[in-house]
Computed example of a mutant assay.
Amino acid sequence: MTSNAHIDQLVREQLVELLRGGFAPNVILLREFNYDKAGVMLPGLHFSGWVLLGHMHARLSTLLQFMKNPEGYIDVWPDAHWPENHQPATEQEWNAAIDAFEADQEEMVQLVQNPEVDLFKVQPNGKTLSWAAMTTFNHTGYHIGQLKTVGRQLGVW
Rank of each mutant, 00 (worst) to 15 (best):
G145K: 07
E107K: 14
Q153P: 00
F120E: 02
L53P: 09
L119Q: 00
I74S: 14
F47C: 14
S130K: 13
T128D: 02
A103F: 04
I7M: 09
N34H: 12
V112W: 09
S61L: 06
G21W: 02
L18W: 15
F120R: 06
N95R: 10
Y73N: 13
Q123N: 11
V11K: 05
G39Q: 06
L53F: 11
Q92G: 03
Q9Y: 05
D99N: 09
V40Y: 10
A58K: 14
W82Q: 15
K121S: 01
Q113H: 04
L119I: 01
I7W: 07
L19W: 12
T149E: 04
A89C: 02
Y35A: 12
T136G: 10
M56L: 12
N138K: 08
H55S: 09
S48E: 03
L15K: 02
F137H: 14
P78S: 06
A96I: 02
Q113F: 00
L29E: 10
R31K: 10
A133F: 10
R12M: 12
V122L: 07
G54N: 02
L19T: 08
R20P: 05
G49S: 01
P25S: 08
V27C: 04
A132K: 00
T135K: 13
R152Q: 12
E17M: 06
V112T: 07
R20Q: 14
Q92T: 15
E106Q: 15
Q123A: 03
P83R: 03
V117S: 08
L63I: 06
V40K: 04
Q9L: 03
L60Y: 07
A24P: 01
F66M: 06
Y73W: 14
Q146V: 07
L29Q: 14
E91C: 10
P88H: 01
V27Q: 08
T149I: 11
N125Q: 07
Q146T: 05
V112N: 05
L53M: 02
V11G: 13
N34C: 03
D75A: 07
E84Q: 15
H143S: 09
A132Q: 10
V51M: 07
Q105R: 08
V109C: 11
Q14I: 09
S130A: 11
G151R: 01
G44Q: 01
D8V: 08
M108A: 09
L129M: 11
S61A: 09
D79R: 13
P25Q: 05
S48I: 01
L42M: 06
P88M: 01
K127I: 02
S3W: 07
V150G: 00
